[in-house]
Design a protein around this nucleic acid. Structure first.
Lengths: 338, 338
DNA sequence: CTGAAAGCGCTTACAG
DNA sequence: CTGAAAGCGCTTACAG
């Protein structure tokens, strides 16, 4: 492969000149600039990134890290959609993406990950914090690497989804349809801050509508589809007067619908069921699911933009990405006779 | 951050010695080795990867590339499961993963991708070839970078899923249950080699069972859930005697089940429906879907192992990863009275 | 407006 | 068994 020196020789200038012309330094005559550019083209020169990284101290690599806390992490549509947003923005701005999924636990930090962080191989890091008790960011901060977190871990630069808004929108929609006997399928509130805030929003809407928040039936699952089915079975058995189920993620909502159907309830005729996340499958399920979109690709894109801003020396403010209510066919007004 | 030189000074040896000890060169006294290791530990030395890459000509970066041909690529569970397998193997063997999703089309190659390939930034490439007419591998071969393809593009080193076997297993299962009136929901056979081979397997099983292969009702979708529903509507209307539907991917199978249910057929009581891929949702759908697992993580792991073998100078043979029949509740024997 | 030269932090023949 | 020295291919003050 041709090097800078080859280009310089062919163009009849110094390597310094070639380097500067390629990095768009001003002050060069159009003629020089053109000579260099022509030589570059003729030789098919492409800069060696390792050399550039060593000399400039910048690798143009952004690492995306998410702790490998459970097997299904690579199939979590949310994470993948976020990744997509990050990828689009980074690629467009000339950065490459390194993927790291350190095996983190409460005590130990993955030694391979630690090496990577300290190796100077990345200009910045975007951490997808999907787990409440574990953060990949501590060694990053120690090393002084610019970082942006997506989620709730304490750090200077972060982007979050407007969970409280989402919870509010979701409950508000169900209330606006006329429902008053509503059950909630959640996960233990302390499990994750995002769940906490969604519940805050849900309860806020309920209170505004004059409901007794304490009296709302609630049952916890564990995010999985079967757990949603189990929760629905419990709630519908104990509270047969319910006309709506508000689920704090889509997978539990799908399970709840399946369970309700097996118990003889029709959705949405007899029972409204709404979810949260707008996973791809929500749109094609039968019936298509009413849910809250976190705009996951946007979360990723915004995080990437924020990090690139930090790399340019800026000090951006944290950002909360708004949620959207997506109304489909799993929600309807309660039947008048009820 | 401390450098090799710092370590050398502290240990009272040359940088060459430190470098060699760290790369496990033999011939050093236990004493020297220990001095070096102690200094490394005391200083918290971590090698600078950019410098190492420049000097050694190896970056220890593996690029995973899949053409960005449609928006949903980041939500394709298959790709993500493959990625998971690749990640596990690479991380374990000390390689880092770079993610690249070039925007490829029939004529033009993404210029950013081209730069990346020619920049010497990656030791090897794993290409996930999900699209029949477009390959990310050509510039890679030109540059002489070791590459492994997952899929059907012509290249020396590749791993494939045993599509014909999968098709055979799937049809065989349905036949073994006693079905003889079977419809096929596919996509246009020329759309992708993997589909072609699955159909070859399906027909082989049908022929072995004495069915008239030409007479089997078949309708094409486009991989999507709604298209599966449409295909089922057509087939069940035109051929009300069908007792089973063999779908060439899971999403179409889910659509087919939903459609059948809306038309008043019960699955599996009135109709057996089977899919292909074993996407995560297949296991929790109601009813859980009988399907073929491609063992996607295994595909990724095997591809990574193959590439690392090539990087070590080996010449591994292409590998076909076997498929597995996963029997769940969407398939059953036809009712005796039919 | 352009260039000479040092330096980024490693690895690797080559000597001894 | 260990070290001196060149070199990987760039960038960047510093001069002029």
């Amino acid at each position: 492969m041709p090097t800078l020196e080859d280009v310089a020789r062919r163009a009849g200038v110094s390597t310094a000149t070639v380097s500067k012309v390629l990095s768009n330094t001003p002050y060069f005559t159009a003629e020089t600039r053109e000579k260099v550019l022509r030589a570059v083209k003729e030789l098919g020169y492409v800069p060696n990134l390792a050399a550039r990284a060593l000399a400039a101290g910048k690798t143009h690599i952004i690492a995306v890290v998410f702790p490998y806390v459970y097997d299904a992490i690579f199939t979590d549509p949310l994470i993948m959609l976020i990744l997509q947003g990050i990828e689009a923005e980074c690629t467009q701005q000339g950065y490459n993406l390194l993927l790291s999924t350190p095996r983190l636990s409460d005590e130990a930090v993955d030694p391979i990950y630690l090496q990577l962080v300290q190796s100077g191989y990345m200009d910045g890091i975007i951490a997808i914090d999907n787990h409440p008790r574990v953060s990949a960011l501590e060694p990053v901060h120690q090393r002084g690497i610019p970082a942006v977190a997506i989620g709730y871990h304490p750090t200077r630069y972060y982007v979050r989804s407007a969970d409280q808004q989402g919870g509010y929108q979701l409950m508000r929609h169900v209330l606006d349809l006329g429902h008053r006997h509503i059950g909630i399928i959640s996960v233990p509130e302390t499990m994750h801050p995002s769940i906490h805030y969604r519940l805050v929003g849900v309860r806020q809407a309920a209170a505004e509508a004059g409901l007794d928040v304490q009296a709302i039936p609630e049952w916890d699952g564990d995010f999985s589809t079967p757990s949603g089915a189990a929760a629905a079975a419990h709630l519908l058995t104990e509270h047969p007067d319910l006309t709506a189920l508000v689920c704090l993620n889509d997978r539990m909502a799908l399970g709840a619908i399946q369970q309700a159907r097996e118990m003889g309830w029709r959705v949405p005729d007899d029972l409204t069921v709404v979810g949260y996340d707008d996973i791809p499958y929500a749109a094609v399920f039968s019936p298509p699911l009413t849910t809250i979109s976190q705009q996951a690709p946007e979360l990723g894109r915004v995080a990437a933009q924020m990090l690139l801003e930090v790399l340019r020396g800026g000090h951006p403010e944290p950002i909360e990405v708004p949620t959207h209510l997506v109304i489909r066919q799993s929600s309807a007004s309660p039947r008048s006779e009820s």
